Amino acid sequence: CKPMSYEEKRQLSLDINKLPGEKLGRVVHIIQSREPSLKNSNPDEIEIDFETLKPSTLRELERYVTS
């Protein structure tokens, strides 16, 4: 899986911020299912740190927000 450039992460962040509330739950689910360290975090307060997410997680999020 190809790592994301800074610009791609920035765009992904903007795209996620534009999602309606009902789609954000899926974003949280994708992150929690792929990032063991965030599995028990509160979905309402999850802070997405794009620098610490795996490339595969970032690509999955990218696919979701652009679908």
Rank of each mutant, 00 (worst) to 15 (best):
Glu47Arg: 10
Glu60Arg: 02
Ser37Tyr: 11
Leu38Thr: 11
Leu53Gln: 03
Val27Ala: 08
Lys39Val: 09
Arg26Phe: 05
Ile30His: 06
Pro55Gly: 08
Gln32Met: 10
Leu14Pro: 00
Ser67Arg: 10
Gln11Thr: 05
Arg34Pro: 00
Pro3Gln: 05
Leu53Pro: 03
His29Cys: 00
Arg10His: 08
Tyr6Ile: 13
Asn40Ile: 11
Glu8Val: 01
Tyr64Val: 09
Ser37Gly: 12
Ile31Cys: 05
Asp15Thr: 13
Ser33His: 04
Ser37Phe: 11
Ser56Cys: 07
Lys23Leu: 15
Lys23Arg: 10
Glu51Cys: 03
Leu58Arg: 03
Glu7Arg: 06
Ile31Gln: 00
Leu58Pro: 06
Asp44Gly: 10
Lys9Pro: 00
Lys54Asp: 05
Ser41Gly: 11
Gly21Leu: 11
Arg26Glu: 15
Val27Pro: 00
Arg10Cys: 10
Arg26Gly: 10
Asp15Glu: 14
Ser67Asp: 13
Leu53Val: 02
Lys54His: 07
Thr52Lys: 15
Asp49Leu: 05
Glu8Lys: 02
Asp15Tyr: 12
Lys23Ser: 14
Asp44His: 10
Ile31Gly: 03
Thr57Ser: 02
Arg26Ile: 04
Pro20Ile: 00
Leu61Tyr: 02
Thr66Arg: 15
Gly21Ile: 11
Lys2Gln: 08
Lys18Gln: 08
Glu51Pro: 03
Asp44Arg: 12
Cys1Pro: 14
Thr66Asp: 11
Glu47Phe: 04
Leu58Phe: 02
Glu51Met: 10
Leu24Gln: 11
Cys1Asn: 10
Leu58Ile: 06
Glu35Gly: 00
Glu22Ser: 10
Arg10Val: 09
Ser56Thr: 11
Pro36Cys: 08
Pro43Met: 13
Thr66Gln: 15
Thr66Phe: 07
Glu60Ala: 14
Gly25Glu: 15
Asp49Pro: 07
Asn42His: 14
Pro55Arg: 01
Lys18Ala: 12
Lys39Gln: 14
Glu51Tyr: 03
Arg63Cys: 08
Gln11Leu: 04
Lys18Tyr: 02
Glu7Thr: 05
Asn17Arg: 10
Tyr64Pro: 13
Ile16Arg: 01
Lys54Asn: 09
Lys39Leu: 09
Glu45Ser: 10
Leu53Phe: 06
Thr57Gly: 03
Pro43Arg: 09
Ser33Trp: 00
Glu45Phe: 08
Leu58Lys: 03
Lys18Gly: 07
Ile30Cys: 06
Asp44Met: 13
Arg26Asn: 12
Lys39Phe: 08
Ile30Trp: 07
Pro36Tyr: 01
Asp44Glu: 14
Ser67Met: 07
Ser41Pro: 08
Asn17Trp: 01
Arg63Pro: 01
Arg63Gln: 05
Ser56Gln: 12
His29Val: 02
Ile46Val: 12
Asp44Pro: 08
Asn17Met: 04
Leu24Gly: 04
Asn42Val: 04
Gly25Leu: 13
Val65Asn: 09
Asn17Val: 03
Leu14Glu: 14
Leu12Lys: 00
Ile16Cys: 02
Glu7Pro: 04
Arg59His: 04
Gln32Ala: 06
Glu51Trp: 03
Leu12Ser: 01
Leu53Lys: 06
Val65Leu: 07
Val65Ser: 06
Lys54Val: 01
Glu7Lys: 07
Thr57Pro: 02
Val27Leu: 13
Leu19Ala: 01
Pro3Ser: 09
Lys9Trp: 05
Asn40Thr: 11
Asn17His: 07
Leu53Thr: 11
Leu53Ser: 04
Arg59Glu: 05
Arg34His: 14
Pro55Val: 05
Arg34Glu: 12
Leu14His: 12
Lys18Thr: 08
Glu45Lys: 09
Asn42Cys: 10
Ser5Glu: 07
Ser33Pro: 05
Ile30Ser: 00
Ile46Leu: 13
Arg26Val: 09
Glu62Thr: 05
Pro55His: 08
Pro20Gly: 13
Arg34Asp: 03
Lys2Leu: 03
Val65Ala: 08
Glu8Thr: 00
Pro20Arg: 12
Ile16His: 03
Phe50Gly: 04
Ile48Gln: 06
Lys9His: 04
Gln11Tyr: 00
Leu14Tyr: 10
Pro43Thr: 11
Ser5Ile: 01
Glu22His: 06
Asp49Tyr: 00
Leu19Arg: 01
Leu58Met: 08
Arg59Ser: 03
Pro43Asp: 10
Val65Phe: 03
Gly21Cys: 09
Val27Thr: 03
Arg63Leu: 09
Leu24Asp: 12
Leu38Gly: 07
Pro20Ala: 09
Glu51Ala: 07
Leu14Met: 14
Leu19Cys: 04
Pro36Lys: 07
Gln32Trp: 02
Gln11Ser: 02
Asn40Gln: 09
Leu53Met: 13
Val27Asn: 02
Lys9Cys: 00
Gly21Phe: 14
Met4His: 02
Pro20Ser: 15
Glu8Gln: 05
Glu47His: 09
Glu22Val: 07
Glu45Gly: 13
Gln32Thr: 06
Asn17Glu: 08
Glu62Leu: 04
Ser41Thr: 12
Arg10Asp: 01
Asn17Cys: 06
Ser13Cys: 03
Glu60His: 07
Val65Tyr: 05
Gln32Gly: 04
Gly25His: 15
Thr66Cys: 11
Thr66Gly: 14
Lys54Phe: 00
Ser56Met: 05
Leu24Val: 08
Glu62Asn: 08
Ser33Glu: 14
Lys18Ser: 10
Ile31Ala: 05
Val65Trp: 08
Leu61Arg: 07
Lys39Gly: 09
Arg34Ala: 10
Ser5Thr: 13
Lys23Trp: 13
Leu61Gly: 06
Asn42Lys: 15
Ile31Asn: 02
Ser13His: 10
Glu45Cys: 06
Glu22Trp: 08
Ile46Asn: 14
Glu8Pro: 00
Asp15Gln: 14
Ser5Val: 00
Lys23Phe: 15
Ile46Tyr: 12
Asn17Lys: 15
Pro55Asp: 14
Lys18Leu: 08
Ser37Lys: 14
Glu8Gly: 00
Glu51Lys: 07
Pro36Val: 04
Tyr64Gln: 03
Leu12Met: 02
Ile48Pro: 04
Tyr6Ala: 15
Pro3Tyr: 00
Arg59Trp: 12
Lys23Gln: 15
Asn40Gly: 12
Lys9Ala: 01
Leu61Ile: 15
Leu24Phe: 12
Cys1Ala: 10
Ser56Pro: 04
Ser13Leu: 04
Met4Ser: 00
Arg34Tyr: 11
Gln32Lys: 14
Pro36Gly: 11
Val28Tyr: 14
Leu58Asn: 08
Glu47Thr: 11
Gly25Lys: 15
His29Pro: 01
Thr66Lys: 15
Ile46Cys: 13
Glu62Tyr: 06
Leu14Gly: 04
Tyr64Arg: 02
Lys54Gly: 08
Ile30Pro: 09
Glu35Ala: 01
Leu61Met: 10
Ile31Glu: 04
Phe50His: 03
Ile16Val: 06
Leu61Glu: 07
Ser37Ala: 13
Glu8Asp: 05
Met4Gln: 04
Thr52Asp: 05
Ser56Phe: 03
Thr52Phe: 04
Phe50Arg: 05
Ile48Ala: 07
Ser5Cys: 02
Val27Gly: 01
Leu38Ile: 13
Lys23His: 15
Arg34Asn: 12
Lys23Ile: 13
Arg10Asn: 05
Thr66Asn: 14
Glu47Val: 12
Glu62Trp: 02
Pro36Trp: 01
Asn42Tyr: 03
Ile48Trp: 07
Ser67Pro: 12
Gln32Arg: 12
Glu7Met: 04
Glu51Thr: 08
Tyr64Phe: 12
Glu62Phe: 01
Ser5Pro: 01
Thr57Ile: 05
Ser33Ala: 10
Arg26Lys: 13
Glu62Val: 04
Leu53Cys: 06
Gly25Cys: 13
Arg10Met: 07
Asp15Val: 11
Ile16Ala: 00
Lys54Cys: 10
Lys2Phe: 01
Pro55Gln: 06
Leu61Pro: 06
Lys9Asn: 03
Lys9Arg: 09
Ser33Tyr: 10
Thr52Val: 14
Glu22Arg: 02
Pro43Gln: 12
Gln32Phe: 03
Pro55Glu: 14
Leu38Trp: 14
Leu61Val: 14
Phe50Leu: 15
Pro43Asn: 12
Ser5Gln: 00
Tyr6Glu: 13
Arg34Phe: 11
Lys2Ala: 04
Pro3Asp: 09
Pro3Trp: 00
Leu61Ala: 07
Glu51His: 14
Thr57Gln: 00
Val27Lys: 02
Pro20Trp: 04
Ile16Asp: 00
Pro3Ile: 04
Val28Trp: 15
Thr52Glu: 13
Asn17Pro: 08
Thr57Met: 00
Glu60Lys: 08
Asn40Trp: 13
Phe50Gln: 03
Leu14Ala: 13
Leu58Gln: 09
Lys2Pro: 00
Glu7Ala: 10
Leu12Pro: 00
Arg26Ala: 12
Glu22Asp: 13
Val27Glu: 01
Cys1Asp: 15
Arg63Ala: 14
Ser37Cys: 07
Ser56Leu: 02
Glu35Pro: 00
Arg59Leu: 07
Pro55Ile: 02
Ser5Asn: 08
Leu12Tyr: 00
Glu45Val: 06
Ser13Asp: 00
Lys18Trp: 00
Ser13Val: 06
Ser67Leu: 08
Asp15Asn: 15
Cys1Glu: 14
Thr52Pro: 02
Glu51Ile: 06
Val65Lys: 06
Gly21Tyr: 14
Thr52Met: 13
Asp49Asn: 13
Asn40Pro: 10
Leu12Phe: 00
Leu38Pro: 02
Leu58Trp: 05
Thr57Cys: 02
Glu22Ile: 04
Arg10Ser: 01
Gln32Tyr: 05
Arg63Glu: 11
Gly25Phe: 10
Glu22Phe: 06
Ile46Thr: 12
Thr57Asp: 02
Glu7Trp: 04
Leu38Val: 11
Lys39Ala: 15
Tyr64Leu: 05
Leu12Asp: 12
Glu47Asn: 11
His29Gly: 11
Ile30Val: 02
Asn17Phe: 03
Ser41Cys: 15
Ile31Thr: 04
Leu19Ser: 03
Glu45Thr: 10
His29Asp: 15
Gln11Val: 01
Ile30Phe: 14
